[in-house]
Nucleic acid binder design. Structure first.
Lengths: 228, 228
DNA sequence: GTCTATATAGAGATAGAC
DNA sequence: GTCTATCTCTATATAGAC
C-alpha cells in the first residue's frame, strides 16, 4: 500500500514493478497489484487494458532506470578497467536479483515479443556500452589488444547476471562478489604474468582448493552489497 | 502424455521436471503435471503429498543429472584450460536455460530451504570442481599463478548462468557463445601479452566496437548449441 | 475515475468409491 | 493404485452503478 503521493496509474505501475521483481510475471496476479497499489479492480482496468499492458509499462520503466544507473557508473572518468571495475563493484541488492534479467526466466515474457523487447534492448545496450569501453581501453593500451570487445562485453554482463543466480542459490552475496573478483583479476592489466614460467607449485594462501563443496575461500571482502 | 513405459510416479516426476524447466515452480500447476504425466489427481496425491513434495523429487533428479553431465566433461583428460573449455563449449540447449539455475528466480523455491538445498548444493559442487581444476592448472603452470581458484570458479559458473539469461533475452544463443569466447580468451595462457606496449590503435577486424545496440560482432562460430 | 457485482476458469487439495 | 466428485480460493477479467 502506497502513501497517497502518486496518482493511481503511477501507483499501479510501481506496484507492478516491485511484484515483477519479487515474483516474476507468472507469479504476479492483478489482485496482488491492486492491493499493493491501494487501487480497486475498476481502476486498474480503467487505466490499463489488462495484466500484459500494465506489465509492459512497468518493464519499460524498470529498463529505463537500469540504463540510467548503469550509465552513471560507466560514463564516469578513469581508465577502461577502472570504469568496468566501478560498475561491477557498484552497490547492489544482490539477493533480489536483476529486475530486468530475471524476466528472461519468465516463459510468458520471453514468448511475448512486446514484453521481451525492452529486456532485450536493455541488455543489448549494456553490452554495446561495455564493448565501447573495452575497445577504447584496447586503443589506449589499457587492456590487452587481443581482446574481442563484443565477446568480453558479453562475458562481463553474463558474469553479473550469473552472479545473481549463484547468490540467490546460496542465500548470500558472497559468491556474487567472488565472481566479480575473478573477472576483474582476469581483466586486470596490472596482474601477474599470464603464466608462471613453470616450476614448483608455490605454496600460497589459496593452495588447498579441493573439489569439496562449500570449501571455497576468498580474498578481500569487496564492496558491501545493499539497496539498488 | 508419456508412452506407458514408466510407472506412474516416474511419469509424474518426469513431467514435473519438464514443467519446472519450462515454466518454473510458480508457473507449474498440479493439473498441468497430471495431464502431461497422463495421471489423475488421485494418483498424484497418492504418491506425493503435494506440489512441493513432487517438485523436490523432480529437482533432486535434475540436480543429479546435471552433476553427472558436468562431471563427464570436467573429469576428462587434458590441461586445466582444455577441460574448462570443453565444459563451456559442450553442446547445450541454450535457449531453454539451465534447469537448475532457473529455479533461483522462483521466489517459492528460494524461500523454501528444502527446495533450495539441491540447487545450492549442485552449484556449489560445480564451483568446487572448477576451483580444483584451476588450482591444479596453477600448480602445473598451465594457468596464471595469480588466479584465486574459488574466485575464477565463481566467474566461470556465473558466465554460464548469465549466458543463458542473455541468450533468452535476445532469443538467440549467439550471445551465450560470445560470453564463453570472451571468458576463454581471458583465461587462455597462450593469449597475447597482457597489455600492448602502447602504440597506435591497430586497425583490426573488431575495431568499430561502438556503443550502438545490436552492433556486436564476433569471431569463430563456436560449437553448435542444441539439446541438453 | 472509482467502486461493487458477477462470471468463467484454474489452482490446489480432500473424500471416498472402485 | 486409480478414478471421479467436491470444495475453497484465486486469476483474470467484464458490466454497470455512482
Amino acid at each position: 500500500m502506497y502513501s497517497g503521493i502518486m496518482n493511481t496509474p503511477e501507483r499501479l505501475v510501481e506496484a507492478t514493478r516491485e511484484l515483477l521483481w519479487e515474483r516474476g510475471y507468472v507469479g504476479t496476479s492483478p489482485k496482488a497489484i491492486q492491493q499493493r497499489a491501494g487501487a480497486g479492480q475498476g481502476s486498474m482496468y480503467h487505466h490499463f487494458t489488462g495484466k500484459p499492458d500494465l506489465a509492459l509499462a512497468a518493464i519499460r520503466r524498470t529498463a529505463g532506470e537500469l540504463r540510467a544507473a548503469a550509465g552513471t557508473s560507466l560514463d564516469g572518468p578513469g581508465t577502461a578497467y577502472e570504469r568496468i571495475a566501478g560498475y561491477l563493484r557498484r552497490e547492489r541488492d544482490v539477493l533480489r536479483g536483476c529486475p530486468v534479467g530475471r524476466l528472461t526466466m519468465d516463459p510468458e515474457v520471453v514468448a511475448d515479443d512486446r514484453l521481451r523487447a525492452p529486456v532485450d534492448e536493455t541488455l543489448d545496450w549494456l553490452r554495446g556500452k561495455l564493448a565501447g569501453i573495452v575497445e577504447q581501453g584496447r586503443e589506449r593500451g589499457e587492456l590487452s589488444a587481443t581482446l574481442v570487445p563484443a565477446d568480453v562485453a558479453a562475458t562481463i554482463v553474463a558474469t553479473l547476471q550469473g552472479g545473481y543466480v549463484l547468490a540467490r542459490a546460496s542465500g548470500s552475496s558472497a559468491v556474487f562478489d567472488a565472481g566479480v573478483r575473478g573477472l576483474l583479476a582476469l581483466l586486470d592489466p596490472n596482474a601477474g604474468p599470464s603464466v608462471e614460467p613453470s616450476g614448483e607449485p608455490s605454496a600460497e594462501p589459496y593452495a588447498d582448493a579441493s573439489a569439496e563443496p562449500s570449501a571455497h575461500r576468498s580474498a578481500e571482502p569487496a564492496a558491501d552489497n545493499r539497496s539498488r
